[in-house]
Design a binder for these strands. Structure first.
Length: 483
DNA sequence: TGAAATGTTGGGGCG
DNA sequence: ACGCCCCAACATTTC
């Protein structure tokens, strides 16, 4: 890599933001600021950059987080420069226009993007300074005694923990010198990231994309729910989870910040150590997923366990559509799918229930579910989404065995005992008493009438009988083992 | 981070 | 008082 000093000190530097929309603990931004050069703060809309185009919910979030970040930069007398097109071509043009002498960036964790980043300096002819900001450990860097990637979570996590030194987090830069003339920028509105005709995003307004929203979410979580996290996180009827996943995905907050603040809360005695440890474990799964993707770049398309390549998936467009729309006749499944559609998010426990239902009860390929989540989740993340779908399917690394099949009714009874979650998202059933809420097909006719539930009308009968579907899935698994 | 089937145990009803 | 049966509760195995 060429020395920065090779360029005149007055030449501007480009800070290329991709998914690191934060001022605090942003290593590329801090390093660029320390050079005292004028900074061009760039975002490029490049569909090819991360290996696959982002989904509709992600476009909504991107729109808002760019707006928030641009506004935050205003306090420094700065603005984002927005361009679209092939990243390398855009950067070349901007360097030619401005005489920029260096590019600063934080790497993206996806293998495709990482490979492109590594070739970037050669393609641009200026130094590229790359930093790690998305994960606690660089994907691929945690290896077992034989120098190979871990395939089991627990030893991976042990190794990760052993090398974690809680760092001093980088403060927000004090100044971000602006160039004499700001390069031309496209208009965010022209990118049409916000949905129009129809604008389906009303239910997304519970989110506050951006760094301030990320910190608010972390503070709110550490201020109470964290203490109940080990069990509360399984309760979709309560505010028991951190809801940090989209903020982490978009780099609005650093994973270091999450664990440093959580541990500080534990040290102060504001949070139970055991609860904070559980949170750490979940951050650890995020790390594990990114390591898996780095070690197995085919994770988004191929079964990690090759024997599942022969699984006899069913072609069932109607079943798939009923699942997507939340019309399966299983209240817990339908509540989850409707929460997703309305808000761009689904509670983690319910994600497992709906994924198990698609894969095992309907025997539809996990890739169909992964694709739907990719389009509809505001936290859609290639490593987490594909690793978690394979985890449920039983084909992943350290996955739940295939025969672990969720019963959607009993999951509802266990984790939404008062029916608060189901009644919120499946209002057709709101007046059905708790006793039958999670299995309305078992309710006596008179009870259904009293509650205003008619199966021919608003709410469907189950599209498959769970008991039989379970037997069918287990038979399919047996057929696999005979190969 | 499951559920269902199967096995075991022990209390209570009852002849 | 005793053995038998039933069955709920719990444990283990199986998928």
């Amino acid at each position: 890599m060429a020395q920065l000093g090779a360029q005149p000190a007055s030449s501007p530097a480009i800070v290329w933001f991709r998914r690191d929309f934060r001022l605090a603990d942003n290593p590329a931004l801090s390093a660029a600021a320390e050079t005292d050069r004028p900074l061009i703060l760039l975002y490029i809309r490049d569909e090819a950059l991360e290996g696959r185009p982002i989904g509709a919910a992600s476009r909504w979030w991107l729109d808002k987080t760019l707006k928030a970040f641009d506004a935050a930069l205003g306090e420094f007398g700065q603005r984002l420069v927005l361009r679209h097109g092939d990243s390398v071509e855009v950067l070349k043009a901007l360097i030619a226009e401005t005489g920029a002498g260096a590019v600063f960036l934080n790497t993206l964790p996806e293998p495709a993007a990482r490979a492109r980043d590594e070739r970037l300096a050669d393609a641009l002819g200026v130094p590229v300074r790359a930093f790690e900001a998305a994960t606690l450990a660089q994907p691929g860097s945690v290896l077992n005694g034989s120098g190979l990637p871990y395939k089991v979570f627990t030893p991976f996590y042990r190794a990760l923990r052993a090398r974690l030194d809680l760092p001093d987090l980088r403060a927000r830069p004090r100044r971000l010198a602006a160039p004499a003339a700001r390069p031309e920028s496209e208009r965010l509105e022209d990118w049409r990231l916000h949905p129009k005709r129809p604008d389906w995003s009303e239910g997304f307004n519970l989110w506050t994309p951006g760094e301030a929203g990320a910190f608010a979410a972390l503070d709110a979580f550490l201020d109470g729910p964290v203490n109940d996290y080990p069990t509360g996180r399984d309760r979709p009827d309560k505010a028991g989870t951190s809801r940090l996943s989209p903020h982490l995905h978009w780099g609005e907050i650093s994973p270091w910040r999450v664990i440093v603040d959580a541990q500080a809360a534990a040290h102060r005695g504001d949070a139970r150590t055991g609860a904070v440890e559980k949170l750490m474990t979940e951050v650890g799964w995020r790390e594990f997923n990114h390591h898996l993707l780095a070690a197995f770049p085919a994770l988004p398309t191929k079964s990690f366990d090759p024997k599942y390549a022969a699984f006899p998936w069913r072609d069932d467009p109607q079943g798939l559509e009923a699942w997507r729309r939340g019309l399966t006749g299983y209240p817990m499944v339908d509540a989850g799918m409707r929460e997703l559609w309305a808000t761009g998010f689904m509670h983690n426990r319910v994600r497992m229930v709906v994924a198990s239902f698609l894969i095992k009860d309907l025997m539809i390929d996990w890739r169909e579910g992964e694709a739907w989540f990719w389009d509809t989740l505001v936290d859609a993340d290639l490593a987490n989404n594909t690793a978690n779908w394979q985890w449920v399917a039983g084909s992943g690394a350290d996955a739940a065995p295939f025969f672990r099949i969720f019963n959607p009714a009993s999951q509802g009874e266990r984790f939404d005992p008062d029916g608060v979650y189901v009644r919120r998202w499946v209002p057709e059933l709101a007046r059905l008493p708790d006793r039958w809420l999670h299995a309305p097909w078992t309710a006596p006719r008179a009870v259904l009438e009293e509650a205003g539930v008619s199966f021919g009308g608003a709410y469907p009968q189950p599209i498959v009988a769970h008991r039989e579907a379970r037997a069918r899935a287990l038979a399919a698994l047996r057929s696999l083992k005979q190969l």
